[in-house]
Computed example of a mutant assay.
Amino acid sequence: MSQYKIAVFVGSLRKHSFNRQLAHALQPLFGRKATLEHVEIGDLPLYDQDFDHDYPAQGKRLKEQVRAADAVLFVTPEYNRSIPGVLKNAIDLGSRPYGDSCFAGKPAAVLGISIGAIGTALAQQHLRNVLAYLDMPVLGQPEVFLQHKDGFFDNQGGFGDAGTTKFLQGYVDRFVALIDRHKA
């Protein structure tokens, strides 16, 4: 198996966000199977249909990065029971103009972490609806709704609990298997 390139969208702009930490902590679990390439979304202009005739450089960069990837990983917080506006804006820019979506057909996975008891369950459900419309095959199981507590991440940026590491390793393995099926 060749090494996959996975474009990673973190739905939080906060430098030390739990979701950014989660995205970085996942990289070692992919081992030699995949590299994670983070997509910058903080500098994107708000999507405007007027762009469809003269796309902004940041939107072109995003599309090129996703097109060069074998799959997409979305790591999202939950804001007001849905996905953050910055993440939705990035998706809108990547999917437009109509007929020129960089996401179509790309295998995807969704997860997130929050201090709340239900993790990011509602944000993930909303995001899955958007990704279904974009024709992205999305990993269905296992679902990952993580609750951040002290000690969730260790001092080296990994996971502070062997059970969490094992669970997330299973998630990563299922995501790689989904990519394998779509690349075959």
Rank of each mutant, 00 (worst) to 15 (best):
T35K: 14
Q125G: 01
A7Y: 04
Q21H: 12
G99Y: 09
R61V: 03
Q21F: 02
Q58R: 13
G116F: 03
S95W: 08
F30N: 13
K63H: 04
G42N: 14
H53K: 12
R14C: 13
K5M: 02
G42Y: 09
H38F: 13
A7G: 10
A90I: 03
A25R: 14
R32E: 15
F74R: 10
S101G: 10
Q65S: 12
A121I: 06
L73G: 10
T35W: 03
A68Y: 08
H24K: 15
R67Y: 07
V10W: 11
N80K: 12
L122N: 07
G31E: 10
D43H: 11
K33Q: 15
A25G: 12
A90E: 06
K5L: 05
F51Y: 15
S12T: 15
H38Y: 12
L46G: 01
P84N: 14
E37A: 10
A121D: 00
V8W: 12
F18L: 13
A23Q: 12
I83E: 10
L127Q: 05
P56K: 00
P77A: 08
L36W: 11
Y4W: 02
S17Y: 13
G99P: 15
L122V: 01
F74N: 06
L46R: 00
P28H: 14
L44D: 07
I41M: 11
Y79M: 10
P84F: 05
F18H: 14
A25H: 07
Y55V: 06
A69C: 10
L46M: 12
L62E: 09
Y79K: 04
N89C: 09
E64A: 14
E40H: 08
I6M: 05
V110N: 09
Q27I: 04
G59N: 05
A34P: 02
D92F: 00
F18P: 01
A90F: 04
V72I: 11
Q58T: 07
E40D: 15
I91P: 02
V39P: 09
V10K: 12
P56Q: 02
L62K: 08
F30D: 13
L127A: 04
H24T: 14
L22T: 04
Q125S: 07
K63W: 04
A25K: 06
G119F: 01
L26E: 09
L62P: 11
R32T: 14
D48C: 01
F30A: 09
D50K: 00
E78Q: 13
R81A: 10
I91F: 05
Q49H: 07
